[in-house]
Nucleic acid binder design. Sequence first.
DNA 1: CTAAAACTGCGTCCGTCGGATACAGAGTAC
DNA 2: GTACTCTGTATCCGACGGACGCAGTTTTAG
Lengths: 240, 240
Amino acid sequence: METGGVDKRRLYELLWGTPSGPRRGPRPTLTLDAIARAGIAIADAEGLEGLTMQRVAESLDVTKMALYRYVPGKAELVALMLEAAIGEPPPAPAGADWRGQLDDWTRQMFDRFRRHPWAHAATVAPRVPGPNELAWLERVVAALTGTGLTAGEQLDVAVLLVGHARNLAQHSATGTAPEHGREAAFTMLVRGREAQFPALDAALRTIPAQPPGDQALDFGLARILDGIQALIATRAAAPA
Amino acid sequence: METGGVDKRRLYELLWGTPSGPRRGPRPTLTLDAIARAGIAIADAEGLEGLTMQRVAESLDVTKMALYRYVPGKAELVALMLEAAIGEPPPAPAGADWRGQLDDWTRQMFDRFRRHPWAHAATVAPRVPGPNELAWLERVVAALTGTGLTAGEQLDVAVLLVGHARNLAQHSATGTAPEHGREAAFTMLVRGREAQFPALDAALRTIPAQPPGDQALDFGLARILDGIQALIATRAAAPA
DNA sequence: CTAAAACTGCGTCCGTCGGATACAGAGTAC
DNA sequence: GTACTCTGTATCCGACGGACGCAGTTTTAG
């Protein structure tokens, strides 16, 4: 049923193509953007499994097959949804150094992913990046320009940060349970198997009540930025 | 079609349950492990979309419905596949400090994810952790015991490292193109839009021929471990 | 002003998927 | 030996993604 394959050429046109001029035939009743937004609304509420061409069409008061006049298939629809859901990057915080900019950047990215939990699954497969996605990347590179990091390292930083934001957004949105933290779930599993997981058991015993929040995001982000800062310091001390 | 929902209670039994004693009726012709391994072989070759109950059954010379005597549904099968594919954690390198242990741990995890590209998609949804998954987590906590990090921080480190390994394994296995690196793909997109992505354009011009390998994994891992090391240093200097 | 051309939206159809259900046979415990 | 229970299978279903062709509508060419 699901082809799974993405029509890369057509998807590139959809993502980067300019709105065409006057065409022949009846006016299209739909817009790519409206379709993408309808899909986003459904996926936000019920996930990618709940996203059906039928449901998208219904929410737009159109037949299912009408959608295929705009989008080659479901895979390309999800790609368009992703580009629209990520949106344009927010303006860089004024007067911030590279660290402040990257910190803000990561938290903004985290927010987008958390608002659209399906986005994680949508970014697992290799994909054609859209204008918005490239604009986000541009922000990272711009923030790191002049720090002494090579271009390859700047891209590596972007990969590192977006990966962290995406990873933690998943943990935050689809937490093991609404009422318990992840520690409670682990404790239940370790109980009675202390011999098998001694270190884990000892650690879980010392854990206090977990304040809800994005503590894991903060922790990882601080470590990553500390590590980058250390590298920049060595580059500044001994420029190549 | 796909229920999407996982039977948590039944899955817990499958993952953690002990092999039952003598039962009545005919001997089962299959094993949970054999089914999981058959599924892994198919998913390794064709991804999760190519994984079908039908195909798994065929490769085991059984009817499709026979599988449902062992596994409640496809979601639980994938969970069992994941647990089997991750496998037991390798022995910790002898005589290594926490950094050496975590470095090795992350690379080993990276290897598992790269060998099974579908594992990333399988770990997007919240899940019931199996014995192997918990054993891997135990290794991280054990390595960090005595460093002054709190239990919560130790778990945060595990989340950070496994996220990085999983993220980079995806980039490595499903690279944008076999012949070009990611930089080549970006360059094609930025070309002609230099005004829109000035920093990215400038960076891409300075990029040398990219030696294939796991450079991005190394870079991010080094930054993360540097950041953790800095935190441990402050804890050692001012113990709470 | 007319006619051809092109494009939209839709109805119908198909193959495949995950899964429910019911049944016949095989093996075990009493 | 007999009753019970578990296995494997055959059949069936609804839902999904997508192909195809038709009819209507709007723009362009003459």
